[in-house]
Structure formats: C-alpha cells, structure tokens
Amino acid sequence: MLSDLGFNRQQSAHDETQAPNQQHTNYFIAPWFYCVETICAPCGVVIAWTKFAKAESSTNILKFLDSVYPIPDLQPNYVCINKACLLLCTAVQHGVWDWCNPAPLNGSAPNLVIVENDKQGNPHYKQAFNTQACEQLNAWIGGFQSSVNKMNVENFNWTMHSLLFIHTQQIIKKQQKKRNNNPVLRAEESDEDEEIDG
C-alpha cells in the first residue's frame, strides 16, 4: 500500500516576505517538498518512505516503487493506492509494472476478492483488501505535523525515520501478541518450526 502523509501545502519561510525583525529560517515545508510517501505492508509495517518534491505524480510514484523494488521478480503482486487509475494509465503508457485486475472473479486473487454471504445467505463478491493500515499510519504520524514542519531537512529525515521505525516496532509487537494469544496460530508456527528443523 502506498500513502502520502500530507506534510505540505504551506508557504515556505524562505519564500515569504520577511518582516524586518523576523528571523530568516529554512523549514521543511513546501515548495521544496510536497509530501511524504510511504509503502506499507497490509499489516501496517512500514517498508519504505521518501519525500516528493512539488507533486505526488504517477511518474514519481512509479520511480519510488522502482527504487524500492528494482528486481521485477521481487515486486509485490498488488499495489493499493488511492491514485490507482492514474497510476495504472501511466504504467501502461510506459510499459512498466504489470498491474492486476483489481476485481478478478475467477478465484485467482483471493486476497483481493472474496465471496461472502449476506444476511439472507445470498453469495456476493466483496473486496477483501483493506487499506486501513495506511489510514491509521497517516492519522498517527499526522499528530507530529506541527513539530516536523518547523525542522530543517536533516532533522526531519531523522525524525521521520525514527517515528516510522517506532510505528513498525509497535505493529510487530501487536502481531506477536495476537499470535501468542491465538492457539491456532501458535500451533501453525510450531508445525513450521518442526518442518524447518526436520
């Protein structure tokens, strides 16, 4: 999943008309950088992040994906993003990143489309992929916006990297706690460990 964290849309102190007694500083705010783009696993673990200058364009997104996944065989099977149609169009035009049908009904993508029964027992197709992980990350990191907007670029990079590391560690702890509290998952892990040892 890709998501942009809107640390943006504020006029730069560098470009403002300075009052005579106002100190001139260079802060991390637009127009130098438009937003922070993240790649998250569906569980919420942050895989990568970068800053986008000026725009969250399809070309910038594809370049970011290529920098994180330079080997086609290691690219994710699916990418979920709110600009998917525009991104798909750009990818097709440039002949890069073969994209899937987001709603295949032939059972080839059970992580995207599932069959669910309504209250009357009638089967219907339902989107299985959930984008809440990115929304939760955006909401959490957005709480730091007023602080990071007043940082220089180096401090911002360090702070953002640290915050995303902390977020990822929290997600991993929650997943481990779920596994520890779920006997079925514990049994499956034990079986996997035995297969590896054996």
Rank of each mutant, 00 (worst) to 15 (best):
A187I: 06
Q169L: 13
F64C: 08
I39P: 07
D191S: 01
N82K: 13
C43G: 07
D4H: 03
M160P: 03
L112M: 08
Q11W: 13
T168R: 03
A103F: 15
A84L: 12
C134M: 06
D4C: 01
S146V: 02
G121F: 05
D66G: 09
D66F: 08
P20D: 09
T90S: 14
Q136R: 06
S58W: 07
S67F: 11
N182Y: 05
C134F: 04
E154Q: 05
F28E: 08
E116D: 14
D66Q: 15
Y34P: 03
E16L: 15
L112A: 06
L163Y: 12
Q170W: 06
Q136P: 01
V153I: 12
I29Q: 07
P42I: 06
Q132C: 11
E116S: 13
Y27P: 00
H124E: 00
C85P: 08
Q127K: 13
T159W: 06
L137Y: 00
Q176E: 15
Q176C: 12
C89K: 11
S146R: 04
C89E: 10
Q175V: 04
F165L: 11
N122A: 09
S190K: 11
E189V: 00
Q11C: 09
G121I: 00
A48E: 13
P42T: 10
E135A: 08
R9F: 07
Q175L: 14
L2I: 12
G198Y: 13
Y78L: 03
Q23M: 01
A133Q: 09
G142L: 01
W97A: 00
T50K: 10
L5D: 04
I29K: 05
I171H: 07
G143K: 04
P183Q: 06
E135F: 04
N122T: 02
S67L: 02
N106K: 05
S57A: 10
Q136S: 15
